[in-house]
Design a protein around this nucleic acid. Sequence first.
DNA 1: GGCTATTAGTGTACAATGTACGCAGTACGA
DNA 2: TCGTACTGCGTACATTGTACACTAATAGCC
Lengths: 286, 286
Amino acid sequence: MARKKKPNDLPARTGPAKKSSGGGSPKPPLTHDDIMQAAVRVDPELRRRSELLWDDRTLPTRGPKPGLTPDDVVNAAIQLADADGLAAVTMHAVAAALGFTTMALYRYFPNKEALYDAIVDAGIGRPPSLPAPREDWRTEVTTWAHAKRAVLCARPWLAELPFVAAPHGPNWLSWLEAITDSLSTTGLGAAEIGQMLSVIDGYTRGASDTAISLARARARGTSEAEWAAAVGADLGRAIGDPRFPKFAGIITAPSDERPRTLEESFDFGLQRVLDGIEIYVRSVTA
Amino acid sequence: MARKKKPNDLPARTGPAKKSSGGGSPKPPLTHDDIMQAAVRVDPELRRRSELLWDDRTLPTRGPKPGLTPDDVVNAAIQLADADGLAAVTMHAVAAALGFTTMALYRYFPNKEALYDAIVDAGIGRPPSLPAPREDWRTEVTTWAHAKRAVLCARPWLAELPFVAAPHGPNWLSWLEAITDSLSTTGLGAAEIGQMLSVIDGYTRGASDTAISLARARARGTSEAEWAAAVGADLGRAIGDPRFPKFAGIITAPSDERPRTLEESFDFGLQRVLDGIEIYVRSVTA
DNA sequence: GGCTATTAGTGTACAATGTACGCAGTACGA
DNA sequence: TCGTACTGCGTACATTGTACACTAATAGCC
């Protein structure tokens, strides 16, 4: 049962860093035992969904042979999403693509959410394998971030799903493992590496949004010029509006000053982020 | 009409920074004239939606007096979203909350997407006003980022909407104006300020995701402990799994090393990002 | 004041979607 | 061989967004 929250007064002036505002919360100690013990109390549906991602379903010995595998369903769903966006992934469409009826899918996934979990993990794929011989952490992290961004652009429907909150499968963890491995050579402590991981991953996801929007438009058949026109017309409302003088200056900045591609822009920001991390690394390990 | 794309080979090893992979695209010159000229070619539906956010609808002189205003509808929708999440925002529910029938809403918004546009802009509200006397850019930007994060946590349903791509209203632009204003004192050029804006905003949105997930769970009535248990059990699968040795080390790091709240963690990352930007500022303006 | 154009809200209808339920056939194990 | 467990299917239903036509109200014009 959801509880009522206070009505919608617009969130006004929020104080600076030190105040403990919305979302701040004591992080519990996550030791192995605690986790295993706490897991018992997890919402059974979430647990079920998580297990579907991890437990290799041992197919039962009795009864008719299944005509499909979960992977078949996932692949069909991903093809639909790649071709026509997430909205094209309906149970009916997926089943039809496989030559089955809608309800047959429910023998493989208990509901659509569970299917979504699966296509997120399959769709995100695996990170680039770490180079041998290993490179310095900045180079490796740069590769990782660009790869992750490329995946999100190649499959823009991934960002439509709440894929940070959802149950995480092996592929998802493999991305975390990869960047953790790269950051391990910094000499930072485990908790600090976790922090840096959040920073890089947060930047990567957040800063990919514009490119994802373009990729989504492109997948819908919109040309790049049309997309740029729409975005430009939208932000262009700032021009001449007395409320947005400074931002209008950004919009109308000479085009030869700005980066040529969205990816270059992403990389520029990434290098600033890594600069900041590098300072910290040096200050700690000096 | 959407076109078929190539089927789903998992995105493998993506090359490092320099290759122009998915999402990279020449950014068109956005001068005032170009924008106004290009805007003509924008998808009419998008244009319509954008206009609904900007044009003060002059109410017609003939006919019965409207029993509602668009703002009434928006407020009702926001209350529902705040209370029970975005899924609770159905045309029927919004209308019922106002004491009208479903179809009455279509006199105010042509479709649900347009209503979504409106609740995004209203829901995001206005940024904190800049202090007088002005402070240094780092302090101001820090305030801005924490405020934005607080809004996203207070209204976790905002992040469920593709609110980067959607038509942007005046409130949205006012956030951009505020941070542009703060960054203007760095002495950077307009295009560079645009870059830094993307970096900070990207980090802020991306790094808020965990807290948003918590806020969403809380809004659903899940306790903080339950949420932490679910997340812990999920990521805890890395523990003992030979595929994720390094990441398991992060998960099991002693709890006294890690930041106490999610907000502290956010701020730590933000300061790294700002460190990186500050280096750049000094290198350019030296 | 009456006519008329215009608009607000309603009622009905419909297509799409997720999914509960029960049935029919199938294949293994006792 | 028979029962049991399982697969796939057909049907049914609630929910949702929205098209369309209708009624009623309001203001300007004669």
